[in-house]
Design a binder for these strands. Structure first.
Lengths: 150, 150
DNA sequence: GCGGTCGCTGCAACTCAGTTGCTTCGAAGA
DNA sequence: TCTTCGAAGCAACTGAGTTGCAGCGACCGC
């Protein structure tokens, strides 16, 4: 269920920057993903015939983030994950991070209104809310396990 | 203004586990710190005469976290930071992360009450709130800079 | 369609946080 | 004081991400 490469190409064209195979391929992969992808997953998910270098993947991801076509999520496992940015989702939102498999998803409908009271001189720029827990797959696996060994 | 090593030793004794120089030294360093410390800062901050191996520092930090004497904070720079856990602060709280210098502090008085609506099958375990921005030092530096070059 | 230019890509080598395996040391109980 | 078993030290490794540089190719003007 890969998103038409056309959409990715259009998005890249709209930035006014160069349209390259690597950018189109990586962005369409992100657009099609139901969750945030780690660099490794992107590398593995890419068409093998293209053989895009890992450094290029890093650079394209950074570029997409700069262009606001993707956003970068940091999780506990010290791995960056990337999400394509649908227009509606540029606003603040929370993330869910599965502590078992590392899956990260965006939670669109959770935009907490927190007004931090910071020490004098501290200037807030952005707020990040992460919910850690088990995703449906890992949680399900654990429940089944518990049932088997009571 | 190092916290008396006695306190650190008592805390370790209360776990019933072994009291070792490395544990005492590292915990008292954490207790005295006004902010969360990265592994590197801990290594540098340790008494040079002790010469504690970096692997030992990692293992002690992990042990302190297991024993609930410290807590582990992940930030965008892919570095773990550690905080001693004052009794009052075991409850949920938020973190501030300076995007310029990497400083991380705990915000005791910010315990947001968020009830996430997750997709079916997803089980939340913990919530993490991070405010990113500039600390008083970096924010001040930037303000002074702007004044100099208008 | 045809160069020329400059940004992008690929390659190799590097950095740096954190981990692992194994041997030696030392805290604590007998 | 002796013994034991967990902790510390050392070396070597892993894996994400970065850097420098040479060569390629997207896009612009013609």
């Amino acid at each position: 269920m890969r998103v038409p490469r056309k959409t990715a190409e259009d998005l890249i064209r709209s930035t006014g920057e160069r349209i390259t195979a690597a950018r189109v391929e990586i962005l369409s992969l992100l657009l099609a993903a139901p969750r945030a992808l780690a660099h490794r997953e992107i590398e593995d998910g890419l068409d093998a015939s293209l053989a895009i270098d890992r450094v290029t993947v890093y650079r394209v991801l950074e570029w997409l983030t700069d262009q606001n076509l993707a956003h970068k999520i940091s999780a506990d496992d010290r791995v960056w994950r990337f999400n394509a940015v649908p227009a509606a989702h540029e606003r603040q939102h929370a993330h869910f991070h599965c502590t078992a498999c590392g899956e990260v998803i965006c939670l669109e409908d959770l935009a907490p209104d927190i007004r931090p009271r910071l020490p004098a001189g501290y200037a807030p720029q952005s707020l990040e809310v992460t919910i850690k827990g088990l995703c449906s797959v890992c949680g399900g696996a654990r429940r089944r396990e518990r049932k088997r060994v009571p």
